[in-house]
């Protein structure tokens, strides 16, 4: 489904991703953990096609297609989705209007206004969002947790094949965390894959990953099953640095 090979990327001349490999199969849930600044958001942005990053090496294929040829919107239409660590605010554009436009952009055929309305209501209910959020301006004045819920709402509306979730769990209270997990599990199935970027194994209790990877200095340095998350939380990143940091220095 998603295959990343030897990915190198830089921003403003600074190399951040330094030869990253990752393969995500159909229906799999992967977790990526790693210290601040290790390049997790950079990876998310590069995967989704942020124009500010320059890819200097490697390859990314999604469903057999070379995504470097595609703009962000084309990647979205292929079924990629990024839940942002820091979603942008768009004043004057209501959540409902935005969702309508987004859903109709990725779909082959436009949804009727009635069907759209129902869909929005249904998904907001799953996310336990007050219906009046539909008329609020996109992310404007939303609390941190509300923004995250809104990201998952968008994911439910767009039904991607691959979701990258960049610290969606950060800053969520326990209830919100469960709601977000419920949202993700809603989509879980043989046709849905996810890459969950997180600092805590807490969320992984609700969304069980098939694989856990540790990212350090622009690379995946070790991978394992869900027990790796627990081990990390126990031992901290210093342990990882000692174990893998030096040996992978190029």
């Amino acid at each position: 489904m998603l295959k990343i090979e030897g990915l190198r990327a830089e921003i403003d001349g600074q190399e951040i991703l330094k030869g990253l490999d990752l393969e995500v199969g159909k229906g799999e849930i992967h977790a990526i953990m790693g210290p601040n600044g290790s390049g997790k958001s950079t990876l998310s942005n590069v995967l989704m096609g942020h124009p500010r990053y320059e890819v200097t090496g490697g390859a990314i294929t999604f469903m057999g297609e070379d995504v470097f040829e595609l703009e962000a919107d084309e990647r979205a239409k292929l079924g990629m989705f990024l839940a942002f660590q820091y979603p942008s605010e768009v004043p004057g554009v209501s959540v409902a209007n935005f969702l309508r436009t987004a859903v109709n952009s990725v779909r082959e055929e436009e949804l009727s206004p009635m069907a759209m309305y129902k869909l929005i209501q249904e998904k907001m209910k799953i996310m336990q969002m007050d219906p009046k959020f539909a008329e609020r301006y996109l992310n404007e004045g939303f609390s941190g947790g509300e923004k995250k819920r809104n990201e998952i709402l968008q994911m439910l509306m767009l039904e991607p094949k691959l979701a990258i979730m960049d610290e969606t769990d950060s800053g969520l209270d326990i209830d919100a965390l469960q709601v977000v997990a419920k949202g993700v599990n809603e989509l879980r199935g043989p046709e849905f894959s996810a890459v969950i970027i997180t600092h805590y194994q807490r969320i992984l209790r609700y969304i069980e990953p098939d694989h856990v990877h540790v990212m350090l200095d622009g690379r995946i340095v070790t991978s394992g099953g869900k027990e790796l998350a627990l081990e990390l939380e126990d031992k901290g990143y210093d342990y990882v640095r000692q174990e893998f940091g030096a040996g992978t220095q190029s």
Binding site: P51, R75, G92, A102
Partner: peptide
């Protein structure tokens, strides 16, 4: 980028920001 990552073309994304404004 945020809007485009949701499937809006660059033109549509720009128009959405302007309409919101």
């Amino acid at each position: 980028f945020y809007l485009m990552s949701r499937g809006l073309s660059e033109e549509a994304a720009m128009a959405m920001v302007v309409n919101g404004f």
